[in-house]
């Protein structure tokens, strides 16, 4: 991520506009971005964006009844596909709840027409929740795994 162009910011804003998120916080290189649909809202401390994608979108909003702590990070689907927790049927899953992960730890696979994409944790921390059942269809940007980042 060497250079952020106005077009990229525009694209991010479009995604925010069309999403049901209330706020978006982003920190990339020299850029800090905070947008909110609540008038007068102000940014809390910025969450460090982890270098190897997927997008570690800041507060993981949706699942449950808002019981998720704000600083937990959700690993999201890079595109639509089938979610696999393990490298092959019957094998132990890539990660289990309570396990510590590094940014480069593999957490799951997303399969599209027999092509498998590895999804990495993107952040150092502890796996708190796996949000999707094995072999379920996931959509682009869907939260897959919740990670509590190391303090």
């Amino acid at each position: 991520m060497s250079e952020i162009k106005p077009r990229d910011v525009e694209a991010l804003l479009e995604i925010f506009e069309t999403s049901d998120w209330r706020e978006m916080k982003l920190k990339l290189d020299g850029l800090e971005l905070f947008v909110s649909k609540t008038p007068g809202a102000r940014p809390a401390a910025f969450v460090e964006a982890a270098p190897p994608a997927p997008v570690a979108a800041a507060p993981a909003a949706k699942p449950g009844g808002g019981t998720t702590p704000d600083h937990w990070v959700s690993v999201r689907a890079p595109n639509l596909g089938t979610f696999y927790r393990a490298p092959k049927p019957g094998a132990p899953p890539f990660v289990k709840v309570g396990q510590h992960v590094e940014p480069t730890t593999e957490v799951c696979l997303i399969e599209v027409m027999k092509l498998f994409t590895t999804v990495f944790a993107g952040v150092a921390g502890t796996v708190r929740q796996v949000l999707v059942e094995d072999t379920e269809l996931v959509e682009f940007d869907q939260p897959l795994v919740l990670i509590e980042p190391d303090a």
């Binding site: 479009e14 995604i15 890079p78 595109n79 639509l80 599209v112 959509e139 940007d141």
Partner: peptide, 17 residues
């Protein structure tokens, strides 16, 4: 179902998806 991000290359133009 949401295929991918906004750019067509990563969504509407991906036959596999």
């Amino acid at each position: 179902v949401v295929l991918g991000p906004a750019p067509a290359r990563a969504s509407y133009l991906n036959a596999d998806l």
